[in-house]
Design a protein around this nucleic acid. Sequence first.
DNA 1: CAAAATACGTAACATACGGTACAGCGCTCC
DNA 2: GGAGCGCTGTACCGTATGTTACGTATTTTG
Lengths: 275, 275
Amino acid sequence: MISNIAELIADRIGTMPASERRAAQTLIANYPMIGLKTVAEFSAAAGVSSPTILRFVSRLGFQNYPEFQSSLQDELAAQLQSPATRTLNPPSPGGGTVSPMLEATLDNMRETFRHLSDKQLADIAARLADRRGKTFLIGGRFTDPLARYMAAHLAVIQPNVFHLAGQESMWRDRLIDMGKRDVLVIFDIRRYQNSLVRFAEKAHQRGVQIVLFTDQWLSPIARFARHVIAGRTAVPSAWDSSAALFVVAETLIGAVTRQLEAEGAKRIREMESLR
Amino acid sequence: MISNIAELIADRIGTMPASERRAAQTLIANYPMIGLKTVAEFSAAAGVSSPTILRFVSRLGFQNYPEFQSSLQDELAAQLQSPATRTLNPPSPGGGTVSPMLEATLDNMRETFRHLSDKQLADIAARLADRRGKTFLIGGRFTDPLARYMAAHLAVIQPNVFHLAGQESMWRDRLIDMGKRDVLVIFDIRRYQNSLVRFAEKAHQRGVQIVLFTDQWLSPIARFARHVIAGRTAVPSAWDSSAALFVVAETLIGAVTRQLEAEGAKRIREMESLR
DNA sequence: CAAAATACGTAACATACGGTACAGCGCTCC
DNA sequence: GGAGCGCTGTACCGTATGTTACGTATTTTG
């Protein structure tokens, strides 16, 4: 079974005329980057003419050059999705139900944080730590618990943190309390919920700053969001995993806490004395 | 020092107008593949117009789109050369808030699962999949969202799943519905809550099987529990992390789902049709 | 050794792509 | 409330890019 273009070339290079073989060799030598450049560059690098490159990709079975490039890109994307571990760690011979799930989850987290800069998190944390406005949190069918989790922590270290629970009509009415200085944290992964999208839009219209936790395909809410956190969710299970988003949430909670250190500590002590 | 485009974006995303920010977000979410496609495809994916994409890359300091693409390709090529330096966000020596937190969390998970056997998880999953009894879930101050998360999923694939919410008196009254065939899933990490301990004890007296999610120091509820899952919670933050427990929960959800495959699938379809 | 077939590059071509001008709109700031 | 500015998309343009036709060179075969 031939699964990638490199193998395909190795398979057919024997049947190719001299110039096309040179094209094949240059591609293999600079795989796959040279194939993503223009025909002209490719041909120059291989020391052959453009038509030769085109005949070459055509011989590989592609209709045209762009199609060939797309194929290379897909291959590359698949590679980038699964970082080193996938190829390094054989899928744990024990074949338990645990390992694959755990491995995938760990990968998801690494991958999620790879796309997340310190600066971005710091920005969001600063926004959440800004005490001039209120903070609202809400989530979808399966992600609402994440919103609750975050709300539970934030509420300890600062006032004016509200988790929007209950019926849609309930939180819709809260819109009236929201304004420019306020922040709305939304969790929404596939399948995206229309009610949330509508809500986000209305909040956005009121000038509320939206922080969105979503999956890599981006909820439509991204359209209205000031900050978007895209977590990986794919695991070998019937369900998507929110674990990566959960960890991002915890990281943010930690960052906000640090920023509010001084006042937060006082507040926590005060709260303890009340319990 | 900014060494790659992703960082560059993170650095400047704050200064960008809304539409360009959307472009930036979609690029980060699908980094870097989207940037290698045509302007038209990129713009479509981001839901903005082509000129916005061009303004976006121009704002990043590139003369034109092809130059931007070349830059992405170079970056990609460098990555492919040395798999070791794969990381987008280098371990930020400046004491970034991200890395230590993520590393600790990943360690926690590995450590948690190291002490968890396939058999143990399978047993618990079997118990939860047993449809003869009811399943109740509850958590503490910060962990209740985990109970909710688990309940939300389990409730989709089987009947008689109940999350115990609200006041203590509320769930105490539910004790009367609980018996030998029922399962009570409790989340309790430091600082352990007396109310939960009392509740667990009473449930235990009624013969309810308790599945406890706790930290490595074991909540006193472990005394009454049939199954104990001890997750690592230590992270460099003011708070404990529930992430490891979260992942165990997801793993369990997956396992139960697999066990109830047949009936579960039917149920899910039925539920879809109701929505 | 001749004739045919194949391989290869040059040059002309069409189009899809990146780029730009401009107008409408919303927002902010007097 | 009005003027100004900045953002964004539509429509159009020039061109770089992939593609094709064709003629020459090279190899193959009888």
